[in-house]
Design a binder for these strands. Sequence first.
DNA 1: TTTTCATCATTTCTCGATATTTTCCTTGTG
DNA 2: CACAAGGAAAATATCGAGAAATGATGAAAA
Lengths: 237, 237
Amino acid sequence: MFHTSPPYAIRQENEVAEPKTLVEAAYRSLRRNIIEGRLSPGEKLRIEHIKNDYGVGGATLREALSLLTSDALVVSQGQRGFRVAPVSLEDLADITETRVMLECTALRQSIALGDEAWEAELTAAFHRLTRAEERLAEGNNREQWEERNRIFHEVLIAACPSRWIKHFLSILYHQAERYRHLSLRRSEGTRRLHDEHAALFEAAMARDADTATHLLGEHIRLTLQSVSLDNASTASH
Amino acid sequence: MFHTSPPYAIRQENEVAEPKTLVEAAYRSLRRNIIEGRLSPGEKLRIEHIKNDYGVGGATLREALSLLTSDALVVSQGQRGFRVAPVSLEDLADITETRVMLECTALRQSIALGDEAWEAELTAAFHRLTRAEERLAEGNNREQWEERNRIFHEVLIAACPSRWIKHFLSILYHQAERYRHLSLRRSEGTRRLHDEHAALFEAAMARDADTATHLLGEHIRLTLQSVSLDNASTASH
DNA sequence: TTTTCATCATTTCTCGATATTTTCCTTGTG
DNA sequence: CACAAGGAAAATATCGAGAAATGATGAAAA
C-alpha cells in the first residue's frame, strides 16, 4: 500500500525488494552490522581487511561505505579512510527531538488524511505488534518485535503525503535503532510498552490528533531516554 | 563560526574545503551541473560516455553518482544505471512545505539562543546580501547573489543547536535551488526581494520569533511559487 | 499483421593491479 | 630527554579490463 513506486526513488524506500547488485548487498549487510552494534562506534573500517568478510572487491566495498556516509552511519575524512560513526549523548538528544518534531507532524497529517484502507492497515499492524509483544516477554523474539514495531510506526504516518518527511524519518529511525542496540538496556521491561502503543493506536483511530501526537512524542522520548551509553562506546577522537 | 568540526561529519557540512579526492571533485562537479540545469531531469547518465568529461575512471564516477543518489539528485534502478532525478510540481510543493517547517523551527531556536557573535555574523551576512542585490539589478552577478543568499539563510539558523535539522535543510536547499534554475523565472524581478530580506533581518535582530518565522515561511513559499516548470522538463516515466 | 523467441550489441557492474598518500617507526640532533 | 627528519610499511584511491545483465533487432510462428 505505501510502497507505490515514487516519482523519484529515495533509496531507503526501495528496500523491500532483494538487493540487485553487490554494492546494495554489501551496503545492507554493513548497515545491519553497524546498527546492531557488531561494529563499534569509532572503529576503523579498513577496506583491505574487511572486503573478504563481505566477499566483494575493494571498489565495491568502497562504494557501499560511501553510501553509508550519507546516512551518517559511517564517516570518512578526506584521504584517511572510513570509520564507524561515533556516538554521543548530544547526538542522541538531537536525533530524538528532531524525530519527535517530524513524526508528530507526519502523524497529524496522516490522521487528517487517512482513509478506510489506512485504518485497516493500522489495525493489522497493531495486531501483529501486539502478538509480537506477547512473545517478547517469553523468548528472545526481539528481531521480530523490532521489525513489527518499525512497521507500526511506518503505518501510523503512512497517510502523510510528504515523501521528504518520511525519507528523513527513516534515516532518523535507523539512527535511533542503533542507539537502542548500543545501550545497556537496563530499564527495558519496566516500561509498559504495550500500553503506550495501545493508547497511541486508540487515539489515532479516534482521529484525535492532539492526543495522538502528545502520546507519540512521549513515546519516542521514553524509548530513547532509557538509553544509557556505555563509556567504552562513547565518542573519542 | 558555524563550521566547527562536528562530532560526526555529515557530508554537506564539510564542503568549505577543497575537494581532497577525485570522487569528491566529480561529486561536486556533477551536482553543480544538475542543480544549474546543464543536465536535464530524467536524462540518462551513461558512465562510459561521461567519464571523459570529468576525467575520472568508471569506478570513481560510479561512486560519485551513488553519492548523488542520497541527495535525491540522481536516481538509480537496480542494474539499469543512473539518471538525473525527475522533477514534478508535487515534489516541489513537498520540498517547499518541508523546508518551511524545518527552517522555521530552526529559526525560532536560533533567535532564542543566538548570542552577540551570531548577531554580528547575521548583520555582516545581511550587508553582503544587500550589496549583491544592488549589483543583481545591473549585470548578471547572479552567481554571487546565489551564494550570499544561501549564506544569509544559513546564518539565520546558525544558532540552532540541531545538526540534523541543518543537515536536512541543506539537502532541501539544494533541491529548491535546482527548481529555481529550471524555472522560466518570469516573475522574478517583480518581487521586492530586498524588502523581504530586510524585514526578516529586522525581526530576527529584534528577537521577534513569531514575526520572523511568519516572514520566513512566506518568503520561502513565494520564492518557489514563482517557479513554473517547463513542460519539457517535467517528469516522464 | 501481431506475438514470441532467440541472438547480438550495448551498458552496467565488478575485480585485481598500480600509483599515491598517510602513518608509524627508526634514527639523528639540539 | 624532547623533538624533528627521514624512510619503510601500510592503507587508500584510482584505473582499465573482464563478467553479467539489459533491451534491441530481426526472424519464425500464430
